[in-house]
Amino acid sequence: MKKPEILFLCTGNSCRSILAEVTFNALAAPAMHAVSAGSHPAGYVHPRSLALLRREGFSTEGLSSKSWDDLTVTPDVVITVCASAAGETCPAYLGPAIRAHWGVEDPAKATGSESEIEAAFDTAYRILRHRIETMCQLPVAELMEKDPAQLRAELARIGSLEP
């Protein structure tokens, strides 16, 4: 059975998709693998994202903001993490992948005090982590092969979960 390749996609690839990529690879390895990319990459990983990942015990070595044009693998599953309900336009990946939308507010756009901005990053991370933990309980490779419609439905359901 093929090892599923997951793409977490956003516009800037500096916060949410990076948080998802690192968290997913830490929790899902070696059964699945994730990358992240953006349709219009920011060119940097947000320093607060890096700090949060390090606080959570994850390595941040080698992380970068990447364009979907630079992907070296074809994803089996594409999960967009933009918060389209907040007026943010999510990119549409045009490949043959199974698609799902897990909208999360962009912590990079948070305003207020230091603690309020920190809380926005923490909230985004906790939502993504909860959804990733739930996805890791699915037989993704088996569903990809035998019942992609069920996988699509499960991923859509997971996209509405809050911790």
Rank of each mutant, 00 (worst) to 15 (best):
E5L: 09
F8A: 10
T11P: 08
G12Q: 13
N13C: 04
C15V: 12
R16G: 00
R16W: 07
L19I: 13
E21A: 03
V22N: 02
A26V: 03
A26I: 00
A26K: 05
A26M: 00
L27F: 14
L27W: 13
A29S: 15
P30Q: 09
P30V: 06
H33D: 06
H33T: 13
A34P: 11
A34L: 10
G38E: 01
P41M: 06
A42T: 02
G43D: 04
G43P: 00
Y44L: 05
V45E: 01
V45W: 03
H46W: 06
L50Y: 03
A51R: 12
R54A: 15
R55K: 14
R55L: 12
R55Y: 02
G57F: 06
G57K: 03
T60H: 01
T60W: 01
L63C: 07
S64G: 11
S64T: 07
W68P: 00
D69L: 15
D70I: 00
L71K: 03
L71M: 10
L71D: 08
T72I: 12
V73C: 12
V73P: 00
D76W: 04
D76K: 01
D76M: 03
V77C: 13
V78C: 09
I79D: 06
T80E: 06
T80V: 05
V81R: 04
S84V: 15
E88Q: 10
E88D: 13
E88T: 14
C90W: 01
C90N: 07
C90D: 12
Y93V: 01
L94M: 14
G95W: 11
A97H: 09
I98P: 11
R99M: 12
R99W: 02
A100V: 02
A100I: 02
H101P: 00
W102V: 03
W102Q: 04
W102G: 07
G103C: 05
D106N: 12
P107D: 08
G112E: 10
G112D: 10
E114H: 11
E114G: 09
S115H: 12
S115E: 15
E116L: 08
I117A: 02
A119M: 05
A120G: 10
A124N: 05
A124S: 15
I127C: 10
I127D: 07
L128C: 07
H130G: 12
R131F: 09
I132T: 04
E133K: 10
M135C: 15
M135F: 04
Q137V: 03
P139T: 08
A141F: 08
A141Q: 11
A141R: 07
E142S: 11
E142I: 00
E142T: 10
L143N: 06
L143A: 07
E145Q: 15
E145F: 11
D147L: 02
P148M: 11
P148Y: 12
A149Y: 05
Q150D: 10
L151A: 07
R157W: 10
I158N: 03
G159N: 05
G159W: 03
G159H: 04
E162I: 13
